[in-house]
Amino acid sequence: MMIKRRILMDETDITLQSDVEPHHLFDFILKQREELKRYIRMHNDFQMSLEPLKIDKAPVIVEIMEKAADKAGVGPMAAVAGTISQLSLNFLLNHGAKYVIVDNGGDIALKTNKDVIMGLYAGESSLSGKIGFKIKYQKTPMGICTSSGTVGHSISFGKADSVTVFSSKSSTADALATSIANHATGNEDGEIVENCLAKAEELREYFRGVMVVVGEAAGTIGKIPKLVETDKKVVLGDIFDVY
């Protein structure tokens, strides 16, 4: 039996699918958030920095965020949503789950025992809601995170409709998506896509694949999951099973 839950906690907005009841997950997430807030109160620059920081002894959530930020060359808060997804996934796996999808506002961590499709939402692009990624369960655990300069509330200095990163960890994918999307600059859609892909090339050792969508232009680098047509309009991060 598949269990679906919604967890809302200030900025954290998780849609969860799992084959186990997520007992104590709310308390676990609350603890992670409190540890992060406590660290920020003592280190104000951690929240505001747009570049990686050197940290000393810190809670696990802070250490994971900083490692991801260091790889991507961005501030550690760029990885916060993906890190919470990653920690939540590991929590449920440690409690016996075989199928888990944690979608924290479009920043996804998953480990499944069957294939799933993730729909792509890319603002006003004609591709939005019409294609999806087929995620093979053998390739999980996986982190799938999307950054956008036209959709959502996260900070982006570029104008991509979507930069979707596939990586082994969602903390890393989150930071990389921000970094790559920050380079979505230029006058033409194709030029913007190429600028994003050029930045992605510099970070290639940290991801499996990247897909960039800007208007009617799109490009990929690395190995992204198989693209499939979808027959329903989806929102950022929507995932549904393949039957």
Rank of each mutant, 00 (worst) to 15 (best):
L93Q: 14
E66G: 09
G158A: 04
P76Q: 06
K111I: 13
Q138V: 00
Y137T: 06
E66A: 08
E191K: 02
K57Y: 09
G129V: 00
D56W: 06
F46G: 09
M142G: 04
T15K: 15
I135L: 12
R33C: 10
K67N: 14
S85F: 04
M42L: 13
G119R: 05
R5P: 00
M48K: 12
I224G: 02
I221V: 12
P76W: 06
G219K: 03
E124Y: 07
K4D: 00
H183P: 03
I64Y: 13
D241S: 12
I84S: 05
H183E: 11
E11C: 00
G123C: 05
M77E: 02
V100A: 06
M42R: 15
S179F: 03
L16C: 06
Q32G: 00
V212S: 14
R208H: 14
G129E: 10
G73K: 00
G82E: 15
E63I: 00
F46N: 11
E205H: 10
G215I: 07
E205G: 07
T172D: 14
S88V: 03
Q47Y: 15
A217H: 10
R33G: 03
M9D: 09
G106N: 08
G152F: 03
N187V: 01
S156L: 07
I3K: 07
E21H: 02
I221S: 15
L87D: 08
R33A: 05
S162I: 01
G143H: 13
L127F: 15
G73T: 01
F46K: 14
K232F: 03
E34F: 01
L8P: 00
